[in-house]
Design a protein around this nucleic acid. Structure first.
Lengths: 232, 232
DNA sequence: TCCTGTTTTCGACTATCAGTCGCAAACAGC
DNA sequence: GCTGTTTGCGACTGATAGTCGAAAACAGGA
């Protein structure tokens, strides 16, 4: 005879807004934790798995077509994580490109991770976990495509990475590394210079807009991967 | 009015046995899927979170003190992943050092990942996910400590990594990389040579037996991390 | 028109690290 | 003592990252 248990999905949807990493949340109007800010989500439906469910629930708060990337993070299952009947949460990370500004309901707003308002339940820990995952994956995957606009300048991309990672990034190294990995390609066009003038910046895009792991670690890499193609 | 839903935990416990990566499973005696092999696990208790639950459930199949590392992998939540009432699974990866041979019940046995017998439900996918996670984490963490004995020779460690990764590993590079990262230290002793003679191998151990992420990626590393200590 | 300030772009230099190779060291067995 | 075997270790090479500085390309004002 077990305690009644429900299952919910929750998403920490992140976007870079004004050079600062922000998360989408809505303000609870009813107890428990009324007035506090909660992540979008809700109960798992009978005919959907957690991946389908989180996309459906997100659609209630934001245009899901703007959410480029959705990824499972972790299960939060403390018996008393919410008052009342037991509720187990599968947490997700969602990413929105910085050039889109999807419409959101009146109770919903973006908040910088560095200045979160009071959050409901254990949602602050979920945001933390999502941020950690983002930082890690930016390093060894092409996940930047999910935060960046379709086309961008190198310095805009540098600012994006710096905001997501929380520390300065070298534009020279960023361009060189992403290029060598085959993730970046020039569009051939240039963006108009800023208000202070300056050389017009070349525009780039990600070659691939689906997640790809790019870093192979040396110790683990097969020695002498394979001979280079014999074509002259 | 939602369909009754239960929550279970499942663990893919991996160990290197005879230079081959193997997984612990038990053979089902009752329908559904009787005769097929299943991962250890079971229903989530009322007063435990998934992490506590998986350790409790594992204790029924193996001495949990031998399971050095337990880590959450992913949620498996397809509505029809098992027949009957809906059952959502949180999957875990467990690791056992290669020098321990824990006692297991009569219905339980180790199976090489390369020659899995017929598996129950979606458990094969869980094993696959656990293997992927292990491969990835061996590369950028000190997770090797959870697979290796307390003390080992470099060539034994090379064989361990090769079995877990599925491809040959250079002993020279492995030692150099792990040493530079500060993960390896010599015990000062040597192991007796093998039956064919040969130079006695020096023994090493991991400096740290708790999980540590060791690789920092260059693009994301703060430029000029910090000045070296001013001590002469 | 020319000069200055600003921003981007790109090449060069250096340090670090990984992949490879080869030899010396240290054992067993004959 | 000789041979075969395994480990240990240094050296070389190529690839990659961190840094710096100069040149290119623009706007605005003198």
């Amino acid at each position: 005879m077990t305690r009644p248990t429900e299952h919910e999905v929750l998403a920490a949807v992140l976007q870079i807004r004004a050079d600062s990493l922000q998360v989408l949340a809505w303000q609870r109007a009813l107890p428990p934790d009324s007035g506090r800010w909660a992540l979008p989500g809700g109960r798992l439906g009978d005919d959907e798995d957690v991946e389908r469910s989180v996309r459906r629930q997100l659609a209630e708060k934001v245009d899901v077509r703007e959410v480029t990337h959705v990824e499972q993070i972790s299960v939060f299952s403390h018996p008393d994580r919410v008052p009342g009947p037991r509720l187990i949460a599968t947490a997700f990370l969602g990413l929105v490109p910085s050039d889109s500004d999807p419409a959101v309901p009146a109770d919903t707003a973006w908040h910088p991770l560095t200045a979160l308002p009071p959050t409901a339940f254990d949602h602050a820990a979920i945001v933390e976990a999502a941020h950690d995952r983002l930082r890690a994956k930016l390093s060894y995957t092409n996940l930047g495509f999910a935060l960046a606009p379709r086309e961008f300048t190198i310095s805009a991309l540098r600012d994006l990475y710096a905001a997501a990672l929380g520390h300065p990034v070298s534009a020279t190294n960023l361009q060189r590394v992403l290029t060598r990995r085959g993730l970046l390609e020039p569009t051939g066009e240039v963006s108009p210079p800023g208000p202070a003038g300056g050389r017009p910046a070349a525009l780039f895009r990600f070659t691939d807009r689906t997640l790809r792991v790019t870093d192979a670690f040396a110790v683990l890499r097969p020695p002498s991967e394979q001979l280079r193609g014999a074509v002259p």
